[in-house]
Design a protein around this nucleic acid. Structure first.
Length: 395
DNA sequence: AACCGACTCAACCGCGGACGA
DNA sequence: ATCGTCCGCGGTTGAGTCGGT
């Protein structure tokens, strides 16, 4: 292959020599600029026709990689001349920067990367190269493709380009400007100004990007219908302290009313269930995730919610991302069907329920949950956040 | 199996800025 | 100041793939 390219190079050089011989020589009195230009154009055309286009072969990659490794980047037109590659300098540079660079990260964007792209685009627009500097291992081309695909999807779905909370997510960057964020809350208290520096917002109609599971799993349980949060006077009702993350149906108005001040609720729909929910894929355990995040294990107070459970049955991930268990009307404990599985380690496949699928559910975070902030960033990468509808936690 | 449309991604193209002669 | 070359950036295209019918 290399020798074949060398032969091609020689042929090209011969053509070049022949064409050059047509040029007026020094001392000639011929000064016809038009003819000169024609010859130059002809040369360029010859060169262009010699240059190969289209997909790179493994051999070409090997040649280019070997050359750049030993000579460094830059002088891309020299690369072509020195290696015999039938590729223009531009093509060589593109191939190296987008595919052969050793520090490239392969594979789909992680949720963190997706969020970062959204944030960066809100900040700087179509500055792909600038954005690539903020995402190590990702190329401007990758980011551009990701964004264009996302843009197309959202346009077709009639969704806004940015989640409306992008401003909140950028709270650590005071310079952030989201041209798409509505100003309906411009006069409200600044986001992220609660005592725990947690944005006090309710999101509607969200779902996870691509329905992918997050890498970190919070504790979660489903509230029995007739229970309430830490209220002293309701001895006949099941009194319980909410865990750090809890889901409940919006119809549980009483529960919502009893929500302590140090909790925050998010409102949303179960929308992103797909085959992953019941495919038996291995899901990380909560404890592992806490350890991974370098944070303290759950306190004794909430041990009831942190019983070791198999990843499949811990109910955390699937409760969040799959249709919730069906509410059993009139059952003794008013619990949800399948709830017992949450605590006994048995597998629980979420029960598809057309009545509750797509319905509005509430996710409740404890504000001082040590990993709240990172949970927020991990989980709230939602494509369909359509409105910031209300402030909560003010009773 | 064939067809079709949607989607992804690699690669190309044109333009403009930087820089040196 | 002007011109030519190189390089990088952003927009666009087209081949390949995948899923649905």
């Amino acid at each position: 292959m290399i020798s074949a390219m060398a032969v091609m190079s020689i042929i090209f050089l011969l053509i070049k020599v022949v064409v050059i011989s047509w040029l007026p020589q020094e001392g000639d009195n011929v000064k016809d600029d038009q003819e000169d230009q024609l010859v130059v154009d002809h040369l360029a055309e010859e060169e262009d026709s010699f240059l190969k286009k289209g997909p790179w072969t493994a051999e070409e990659d090997a040649i280019l990689a070997a050359y750049v490794t030993s000579n460094g980047v830059g002088n891309w037109n020299i690369v072509r001349k020195n290696t015999g590659l039938a590729r223009c300098g531009k093509s060589c540079r593109l191939r190296w920067t987008n595919h052969l660079r050793p520090d490239l990260k392969k594979g789909a964007f992680t949720q963190e990367e997706q969020l970062k792209v959204i944030q960066l685009h809100a900040l700087m627009g179509n500055k792909w190269a600038r954005m690539a500097q903020e995402l190590p291992g990702r190329t401007d081309n990758e980011i551009k493709n990701f964004w264009n695909t996302r843009q197309k999807k959202r346009k077709r779905a009639g969704l806004p380009l940015y989640p409306e909370d992008i401003e909140v997510l950028n709270v650590d960057n005071p310079q952030s400007i989201n041209q798409n964020v509505s100003t309906q809350h411009a006069n409200d208290s600044q986001p992220g100004t609660s005592s725990h520096n947690v944005p006090e917002l309710v999101f509607n109609n969200y779902k996870l990007v691509n329905g992918k599971h997050p890498s970190c799993v919070p504790p979660i349980s489903v509230m029995p219908e007739n229970s309430t949060f830490e209220q002293q006077d309701n001895s006949d009702k099941q009194v319980m302290h909410p865990p750090h993350l809890q889901i409940m149906h919006r119809s549980h108005e009483q529960l919502q009313d009893s929500l302590p001040n140090d909790y925050i609720k998010f409102q949303g729909d179960y929308m992103s269930c797909d085959d992953k929910c019941s495919s038996g894929i291995s899901l990380p355990s909560f404890d592992d995730d806490l350890l991974r995040m370098g944070e303290d294990p759950p306190t004794q107070t909430h041990d009831q919610y942190y019983e070791p459970r198999s990843p499949r049955s811990n109910g955390y991930l699937e409760s969040i991302f799959c249709p919730p268990p069906k509410i059993v009307e009139g059952s003794d404990d008013c619990s949800m069907q399948g709830e017992s599985s949450l605590g006994n380690g048995e597998n629980l496949d979420p029960i598809m329920n057309q009545d509750t699928l797509g319905d509005t559910w509430l996710f409740i975070f404890k504000k001082d949950f040590p990993s709240y902030k990172s949970l927020y960033n991990k989980y709230m990468i939602m494509e369909d956040i359509s409105s910031i509808s209300d402030r909560v936690g003010r009773r």
